[in-house]
């Protein structure tokens, strides 16, 4: 049984192992995200927060609210609380070098000028990655004007997507951007930096749950996927499914860039490793 007591306005709940397991399994089924034991304290604290906000006096009440919430608002709130969103501009930019020095030239070789090249950043969090990709391409790929470059950013967290669309960043977030590039692509907004309208209006941000087959069907013929430091949060089964859905969304011959500690070879044999600008990326074969 769960104990609950009132201390001022807050309600403190001590979850039983069974309650925690029920929540864990529900959240995993809905999102594919699994938490190890080390994260239990973090998860319970966030659950307590939501229970207080919703004034649920027992786990049972809150869990019922969560399961039968038809529009998924409560689940979305939890997702927003339980996912990690910290990032900054030009993070792991050696992969952007691989993009402009190797990947895009290879794609362009097979494509008529004027055609679309589609790049997908997922999870895009508050937008730093897709904007960084755009800046890096505009600055460093001399053929960027010959093609229609579509950059999409997706995340499961609706709050970070709203921030990405707004495009306003702290000085800490842009600290790796040179003063010249800051002047070119940002304007001051109080103590913050506002991304220029040209970039803000050219990137498509959308909410996508990576293990949702129907939602993932919106993404097709993607030439380059940036999926960095996401699959590490998935267990083996969800990771397999996620990788397959990403594979499905990609154009034949398309590329995927993972985080520096991730290796596709340990997840799937569907892709073949390629090396560009000293970094390993993975390519979907032209033919399986």
């Amino acid at each position: 049984m769960m104990s609950a007591e009132r201390a001022g306005a807050a309600v403190f709940h001590d979850f039983t192992p069974d309650e925690y397991t029920r929540f864990y399994e529900f959240f995993y089924q809905k999102t594919g995200i699994s938490f190890n034991e080390k994260k239990a304290y973090f998860v319970k604290r966030r659950l307590q927060e939501r229970m207080s906000v919703r004034e649920a006096t027992s786990f049972r009440d809150y869990f019922a609210m969560l399961r039968f919430d038809l529009n998924g608002v409560e689940l979305q709130q939890l997702v927003n609380l339980l996912t990690v969103n910290e990032t900054y501009f030009l993070r792991e930019d050696y992969q952007f070098d691989a993009l402009v020095q190797g990947i895009l030239p290879e794609i362009a070789k097979e494509r008529t000028p004027g055609r679309v090249i589609r790049i997908w950043s997922m999870p895009c969090s508050t937008g730093e990655e897709p904007y960084s990709i755009a800046i890096h391409i505009l600055e460093n790929w001399r053929r960027s004007d010959e093609f229609a470059i579509e950059i999409c950013g997706s995340d499961i967290d609706s709050v970070v997507l709203a921030k990405a669309r707004e495009g306003r960043y702290s000085a800490r977030s842009v600290q790796r951007v040179s003063p010249a590039l800051r002047r070119k692509y940002f304007r001051p907004a109080g103590e913050d930096f506002q991304i220029c309208d040209e970039l803000r209006e050219s990137i498509d941000f959308s909410a996508i749950n990576l293990i949702d087959r129907i939602a993932m069907a919106r993404m097709r013929d993607v030439d380059v996927v940036f999926c960095r430091n996401l699959l590490i949060y998935f267990d083996d089964v969800s990771r397999r499914e996620a990788v397959e859905l990403i594979y499905e969304s990609m154009a034949p011959g398309g590329f995927i860039c993972l985080g520096h500690s991730e290796s596709m070879s340990r997840m799937s044999s569907l892709f073949r490793p390629r090396k560009f600008a000293g970094t390993i990326v993975y390519q979907k074969p032209q033919r399986p």
């Binding site: 960027s144 470059i149 999409c152 209006e201 129907i214």
Partner: peptide
């Protein structure tokens, strides 16, 4: 040249 992706239709739920 950067172009914004045109709105894709909501995918139909496959039968």
């Amino acid at each position: 040249m950067l172009v914004k992706r045109s709105e894709s239709a909501e995918p139909a739920v496959p039968h």
